[in-house]
Design a protein around this nucleic acid. Structure first.
Length: 644
RNA sequence: GCCGCUUUAGCUCAGCUGGUAGAGCAACUGAUUUGUAAUCAGUAGGUCGUUGGUUCGAUUCCGACAAGCGGCUCCA
């Protein structure tokens, strides 16, 4: 007999060799029907695998992350079985569970697969799922596994086997499909009740662009059709928030073939948002002791040799323009220009920290396939600033920058984000990262310490640093789930030396400053892209392109409408008057769809009393109010940058 | 940049197997003068992304290019 301990602390005795599924059955049949996998002593196992010694056991169902990922991984195997039956001779690479579903990378051997094929595959998968075939686990000696895949001529699985240790190799078989797999899997395919193959794409083998491109097929499955329907409805909802769709509908930005890929033109509505953001940034930075500067969009080659852009970053820059025997580059970053401003006048410790800010325009040659609405563009406007400080001042300055982030996040109600400490990859020193191994480690630990001290939760990621130093990136997700760096805060130990920057310290000696690069509002492009999705286009009044729309019941009240409009505009409120010959219902509908925060309905009653009937976007009729009282209230809301 | 898909009126989309195009909304004109999410009627609007080819004839078939979309790679 063995002792099984449950998460609630209860302990029960079972025969050795009992499976998690049998344990579940001993508790209740209903539970057994829901068990997908089990966590045995902290490790996720097949629910059917025998447990031979005293163990801590947690039964995993759909409600557990481990249960879900097991379900999706098993679904990937089911899909592979269907693919193999429809396209005999294909070879498989890997098929993991991902955040929303799973994929499998397949070498179709020169064949292509279409949307039609996906439907057929779904149908086949449904058939196979109904057979409720169990996933059979089998331990295989390495030699035998190699022989099996050599026989099949499967170079992909042979490649995977290379890195596996003899004795730890397992095969899983369900129905006619056998795969090299660590597992675990759900008990049988019958659990998979709802299947949707979502898309097909290419993916480089092992993620290396030098390798062959495999076909990646994505899918998502659920234990019930209802859950799939809900998931698909949620995806549809997310699409409605997509900044590319709303950006067009709300007249925020446009692009044009004759202008070029990834080059955003801000329309009047978008420009209002830009101006409000800049106003906020200027106020905030002024308060925090920053000075503003303005620099040109181009610079000569030598600047970028000094900065290290050309050795480390040339691929992401537009090619140079030649003039009078000189090469000029469009700037990809503002820092080198700012360094030259720092260096323009001699500095002493009394000038430190020296903080300069600019909404700088940068141009980056992003590869065409990487462009994405407002989120990845080729011309961007960065909420940039550089802080030149002494080593002693570093922690305090870094902390102050961080506080500024949090201040902004509060204003915008940004709650879902992850702070990421982005470090260098020692293997890429001298290629992607400036070759100063010790300085990297020193700076990275400096940043880490500040984060820990300030009690800021963060994750560490290797190989995401800037070429000149570590960063703290703020990661966000677009409506359709793509991850982006919204804001960034970086430490630079390399450029101060490369630019031979110095200040005179208290001992009258030259000293090299540290530089903090920071962009809490990221770029206008990405930030506004994010805001559109964050607010689903319903901007708070202070930032809304149009704040108030005056809607007369009929032409008879147009004069009064003009009068109200004049008062609103005089008060600095962005307002318009609907002069169309339409019924009030139509005017309201159109204004609601444009997501204007306030509508002022005016008719006989309001005109005679000098009042307005207020309607709040999305909330409906709010009652009648005196025009000036309304104006005062909205002005206050704008000044407070209130979010509702 | 790579793999796959897409491109028809300002927007959203129809248009079977090749015989030069349609709807709704928007726009404009007129009627209506309206009380909290679509009043009615009429008018105008397209070299069917661009460019080669096949064909008596191409929006439709094939190629190239461009842009967009889904991923991969990349990402300051």
């Amino acid at each position: 007999m063995i002792q099984i301990k449950f998460p609630d602390g209860a302990v029960r005795s079972y025969e050795a060799g009992v499976s998690a599924l049998e344990v579940a059955k001993s508790i209740s049949e209903g539970l057994a029907r829901k068990v997908l996998a089990a966590e045995v002593n902290g490790e996720v196992w097949d629910a059917t695998r025998p447990i031979n010694e005293d163990s801590a056991l947690k039964l995993l169902t759909w409600d557990d992350k481990g249960g879900q990922s097991t379900f999706w991984h098993s679904s990937a195997h089911l899909m592979a079985e269907a693919i193999e039956s429809q396209f005999p001779g294909v070879k498989f690479w890997v098929g993991p569970a991902i955040e929303n579903g799973f994929y499998y990378d397949v070498d179709l051997g020169g064949r292509t697969i279409s949307e039609e094929d996906l439907k057929a595959l779904e149908k086949k998968m449904n058939e196979l799922a109904k057979q409720a075939n169990s996933y059979e686990r089998k331990a295989i000696p390495k030699a035998e596994a190699i022989a099996y895949f050599e026989e099949k001529g499967d170079e992909y699985k042979l490649d995977l086997l290379q890195n596996l240790t003899d004795g730890e190799i397992t095969f899983y078989t369900q129905g006619a499909f056998t795969d090299l797999c660590r597992g675990p899997h759900i008990p049988n395919t019958g659990f998979i009740k709802a299947i949707k193959l979502t898309n097909i794409s290419g993916a480089y083998w092992k993620g290396d662009e030098k390798n062959k491109m495999l076909t990646r097929i994505y899918g998502v499955t659920f234990p019930s059709q209802k859950q799939l329907d809900e998931y698909l409805a949620m995806v549809e909802e997310a699409k409605k928030r997509d900044h590319r769709k709303l950006g067009k509908e709300l007249g925020i930005y446009t692009t044009n073939d004759d202008i070029g890929q990834g080059l955003i033109m801000w329309m009047p509505n978008g420009t209002v948002i830009i101006e409000e953001l800049e106003k906020l940034a200027k106020e905030t930075e002024n308060e925090a002791g920053y000075k503003r500067v303005v620099t040109p969009h181009i610079a000569k080659e030598n600047l970028y040799l000094t900065s290290g852009h050309l050795p480390y970053y040339a691929d992401s820059m537009f090619p140079p323009m030649e003039m009078d025997g000189e090469k000029y580059y469009l700037k990809a970053m503002n820092c080198p220009h700012h360094h030259k401003i720092f260096d323009a006048e001699p500095k002493s410790y009394r000038d430190m920290p020296y903080r300069i800010a600019e909404y700088g325009t940068c141009y980056r040659y992003e590869q065409s396939g990487e462009l994405f609405g407002l989120m990845r563009v080729r011309c961007l406007h960065m909420n940039d600033a550089h802080i030149y400080c002494t080593k002693e001042q570093f922690a305090e300055e870094f902390k102050a920058v961080n506080d500024m982030y949090l201040k902004y996040f509060k204003i915008f109600g940004i709650e879902k984000y992850v702070m990421r400490l982005s470090l260098h990859d020692p293997e890429k020193l001298g290629q992607k990262y400036i070759n100063e191994p010790e300085l990297w480690l020193e700076t990275e630990s400096m940043v880490r310490e500040v984060l820990i001290e300030a009690n800021i939760p963060f994750v560490e990621v290797k190989g995401e640093g800037a070429f000149y130093g570590p960063k703290i990136d703020v990661q966000i997700w677009s409506a359709i789930g793509r991850e982006f760096t919204l804001a960034t805060n970086q430490v630079d130990f390399a450029q101060p030396r490369r630019f031979k920057l110095s200040f005179t310290n208290m001992n009258n000696e030259p000293e090299v400053p540290l530089i903090i690069h920071r962009a809490p509002l990221g770029t206008h492009e990405r930030f506004i892209g994010f805001l559109i999705e964050h607010y689903a286009g319903k901007f708070p009044t202070w930032i809304a392109p149009l704040q108030v729309k005056v809607l007369p019941i009929s032409d008879k009240f147009m004069d009064y409408g003009k009068n109200v409009l004049k008062q609103l505009r005089k008060a600095g409120i962005r307002a318009e008057l609907d002069e169309r010959n339409e019924k009030i219902g139509k005017k309201i509908r159109d204004t609601e769809l444009m997501k204007v925060p306030y509508m002022l309905v005016i008719g006989e009653k309001e005109a005679s009393e000098g009042k307005v009937a207020i309607r709040r976007q999305g909330k409906g009729d709010m009652g009648v109010e005196d025009v000036q009282a309304f104006i005062g209230r909205v002005q206050q809301e704008i000044t407070d940058r209130s979010s509702d």
